[in-house]
Design a protein around this nucleic acid. Structure first.
Lengths: 234, 234
DNA sequence: TGCACAATTCTTGTCGACAAACAAAATGCA
DNA sequence: TGCATTTTGTTTGTCGACAAGAATTGTGCA
């Protein structure tokens, strides 16, 4: 009967504090639940998570290293902006990572990798069917990360994770503009991509990945260049 | 006359603590002054830098995010190991980054970039001439980072920085084994690389960068595969 | 009223301290 | 002697508090 309030303080374990905050904040940033530019108050977060500022601070440092948060020295820290002006550098990088990770996956994948990829593809199709844009975006990222993992190059996997994370924010804005009119054809593109990987057809995998990236690039660029000719948006 | 000891506490500014520790530790790790696997004691570092554990901790978190330090939860943190078994993934990534950043540099470089690159090439040649392996390795990394910056894609620049940092440790081991017999021909390879960039000859830059990467890969692999056929070393 | 300067408030960076988790040493038992 | 268990010690994760900058408010003067 002398228990502490177990509802709001769920027996947090030693060393887990920073990770909890990091994971949740990261998700909220990538889902645009925290808008780019919003200020982040350490004390407020401390109250919210029921912990001291120290673990909060560690989470923020890690988020800053990921580029998801901008920290002005001695000044406030805020959610990083999406750099629309240099979006082409993003798509250049994404396209190259799509290509190289898919190539490597075709070369090095193992049975367990394919099962994982196919499971995520199923989840993706389901998210599309139930018109859940948020889930779709997250699962899409997980899908391509799984392919990258199957390629077994941690450097490429790392950059891919970073790009796909950032991509979640861009796609979120994209789908918001299109009123959640979800593109079924991406499901089919993923399907043939999986087939090429399973067949260990490296060149075909490369070609499809490149086309897939160009497809997405074209659609987003189309959205951003509605009035003029250079991608002005903000 | 009631001053504090100003010798060992050189007026550190607010907010600078973590960066000082981060930069110095990073350099010591990459120069192998801190051997891979060495344990890192927070208290000891605190005494050495004359500051509390808090800024030390922040530096370690950032180093961990860079993969230069491994942190076991609730246990010691230590200098990350160089993964010799998967070295081919490293060279795959390095080769691709060499190629793509050099290509982009040929496309997007500005006069100031070329001046910076040439200055580093001069410093590199000087380091080779004075047989300073440590400086050579560091300047070589800076040289390729400058090329990456000229390419103006922050995602590629980021991965290149990471790879070249890691490369400093690998090259250090490599040159140790070869008794500082420094390769002059790398200077010439850099020279033609610069020329291709200056001429905005994208395909030539790509070709040279690829050859440059393969050259380095071959040399290091040759060293690591002396007895058997698979890269066993540790 | 408008502007420059001073005072206050607020947020961050740093500190010392404490407690939990782990490792090592010491003790007891078969 | 050898192994299991307890005890001790060390290191990390977390906390509350304090001080330095920056932002904001308030004040005085032209």
């Amino acid at each position: 009967m002398t228990d502490e309030t177990p509802t709001s303080v769920p027996e947090r374990k030693r060393g887990a504090g920073a990770k909890i905050v990091y994971d949740l904040l990261r998700d909220e940033i990538l889902n645009l639940k925290l808008a780019p530019g919003s200020p982040i108050d350490e004390v407020q977060l401390g109250e919210r998570f029921g912990m001291s500022r120290t673990p909060i601070r560690e989470a923020l440092v890690r988020l800053a290293e990921d580029g998801l948060v901008t920290t002005l020295p001695n000044r406030s820290t805020m959610v990083a902006q999406v750099d629309f002006l240099n979006l082409h550098t993003y798509f250049d990088a994404l396209s190259l990572m799509y290509r190289v990770t898919t190539r490597l996956a075709a070369q090095h994948h193992r049975p367990a990798d394919l099962r994982e990829i196919r499971a995520l593809q199923d989840a993706y199709a389901q998210a599309v069917q139930s018109q859940d844009a948020l889930a779709m975006i997250a699962v899409n990222a997980a899908f391509h990360i799984a392919i990258a993992e199957a390629g077994r190059n941690p450097y490429f996997t790392g950059l891919s994770k970073r790009l796909l994370g950032e991509g979640r924010r861009i796609l979120r804005l994209y789908y918001d503009s299109y009123d959640d009119q979800l593109p079924m054809h991406l499901v089919d593109e993923h399907e043939v991509l999986i087939q090429a990987i399973a067949d260990r057809n490296v060149e075909e995998a490369d070609r499809l990945a490149k086309a897939h990236a160009e497809q997405i690039t074209r659609q987003v660029q189309k959205l951003l260049t509605r009035p003029g000719d250079s991608g002005i948006a903000l």
